[in-house]
Amino acid sequence: MNFTLDETDLHILDLLQEDARLTNKEIASRLGKSMTAIFERIKRLEAEGYIKGYIAIVDRHKMDKHVIVFVNVTLKEQSHEACKLFEEKVNAFPEVMECYMVNGQSDFLLKVMIADIDEYELFLSNKLSKLECVSKLCSLFVISETKHENALSLSPGHFVRTFKHGKKD
């Protein structure tokens, strides 16, 4: 059963994206609604799949993941089976944070987080380049991160969150 999100639903999602630890009471107070109404809306948002889960955002630098590399990957062939096999293999690598099938000069774009260049060299030589289906790799090292957004913008001008160097502005 699908439903249309109203302004209250969007505000709830904005608040939870800002701080998933907010209680139903705190959300109700901020929105001028009853705790029961907020509880029911959050349960419905979860059931409908608008809320996929709740996570803590960990500072990558404190976890010794100082280097981000975007890797363009071209496969030897672009069949459905080859793409699925590549996705299965690469999704098992803990260094790969994100994997996207793309169009253009490459087939996939990976976001890789590692401690340093030496760790990337090991990842490249021992894992990624050993995949039989890979034809070409192009690595792009991030020099600086000027914007990192974890929350979707749901309503114009409402709760804009930008993170710089792991700190919320």
Rank of each mutant, 00 (worst) to 15 (best):
D116C: 06
V134R: 00
M63G: 05
Q105K: 13
Q17V: 07
T23W: 10
L10N: 05
L110R: 00
E48Y: 09
I114P: 01
G49M: 02
H11T: 10
A37V: 05
S144G: 03
C99N: 08
E149T: 14
K25E: 10
A47S: 15
D107P: 03
V160R: 15
D19S: 06
V160F: 14
R21S: 09
L131V: 06
A92V: 06
E48P: 00
I114C: 09
G53Q: 05
E88T: 12
L137R: 05
E145R: 01
K167N: 11
F123R: 04
D116W: 11
L45R: 04
L124P: 00
E7I: 11
R41N: 08
E145D: 04
F141D: 01
H61Y: 14
E77Q: 08
D59A: 06
R30Y: 09
I27E: 01
E48R: 04
K33P: 01
E77N: 07
L5C: 06
E95V: 09
L154I: 01
K84M: 11
P156C: 04
E7C: 09
S144L: 02
H61K: 15
S144W: 00
E26D: 13
I143Q: 00
G157I: 06
H158P: 02
E132A: 09
L131C: 02
N91E: 13
H148N: 15
V58P: 04
D6F: 12
K89F: 07
R30T: 08
L10F: 06
C138K: 14
N150G: 12
E121Q: 14
A151L: 01
L152R: 11
I114Q: 00
L15K: 07
D9R: 04
I55P: 01
K136C: 06
L22P: 04
V90G: 03
I57Q: 07
L124G: 00
V67P: 05
K43R: 15
V134S: 02
I51W: 03
V73C: 01
V67S: 09
F123G: 02
G32Y: 02
E7G: 07
A56M: 11
F39T: 12
T4N: 13
D116Y: 10
S29Q: 10
A115V: 06
S79L: 03
K130T: 09
D169S: 13
L45C: 00
V160G: 10
D19N: 13
E88H: 14
V96Q: 01
D19I: 08
G49I: 04
K43V: 13
S139D: 06
N2D: 14
A37S: 12
K127I: 06
F93I: 07
I143F: 05
L75P: 02
L85V: 12
E95Q: 14
V71A: 10
C138V: 11
F70H: 05
V102L: 02
K62W: 05
C99F: 03
N91D: 12
L140T: 05
F141L: 08
Q105G: 09
E7L: 12
K136T: 10
C83E: 05
G32T: 01
E119V: 07
A92L: 08
L45H: 03
D64W: 10
I68G: 12
R21T: 12
T4M: 13
P156W: 05
N72T: 06
M113S: 04
D64V: 10
